[in-house]
Amino acid sequence: MTDDQDKDLLKRFRDSSSRNMAFNELVNRYQERLYWHIRRIVIDHDDADDVLQNTFIKAFKNLDKFREDSQLFTWLYRIATNESLTFLKKKKKNVFVSMDEVSHQLSSTLESAPELSGDAIQLKLQWAILTLPTKQRLVFNMKYFDEMKYEEIAQVTGTSVGALKASYHHAVKKIEAYVKSQF
C-alpha cells in the first residue's frame, strides 16, 4: 500500500460518515500480514487471533492520534508487536521468569501445535528462532520473513539501524549454528 493510499484511507477515517468503511478497508488490507507477524511471536493460532483483535481495537481507538510521522503499516506493526509481547508477559506464570525464558514455553507450544505443518527443516528453523533473545527474534522475523527494510524495522522497534544490523547478523549466525547441530 502506498503512502498516497494510506493518506486517502486516513482522510476517510477522520470523516465520521466514512469512518467505519475506511477502517474495514484497513483491516482487510493488513490483517493477513499482521496475523503472520503476531503468529511468529506467540506461535499458537488462538493466541494470535486474540492478539490480532486487540491490535485492531487499539488501532481503531488511536488512529485519530496517528501523526503520519511513520508509515501506517509500521505503526500497525508496532502496535501488534507491543500487544504480542504484552500477551506473552501476561501468559508467563512465574513473574521472575524472563521474556527469553518464555521462548521455552513457546517451544512446547510449537511441539504440540496440531495445526503445524511443513517439512523438518521449517520446524527446525522455528525451533532455532525460538532460541534467540526476544529482540533478535523480532528483528530476524521482520527482516527474513516479512522482508522489511532496516529503516522500517527501526520505526517498529524504536532501535537504531546500526543496532538492528548487528542483531540480525547475530541472529543469522546463531540459527545456522543451531540447525547445523541438529543434523
Binding site: R39, H45, E115, S117, G118, I121, L123, L125, Q126, F145
Partner: peptide, 9 residues
Amino acid sequence: DLKRNPFKT
C-alpha cells in the same frame, strides 16, 4: 524452502 510457512490456520 526455508521461507515456506510451517504454520496453518
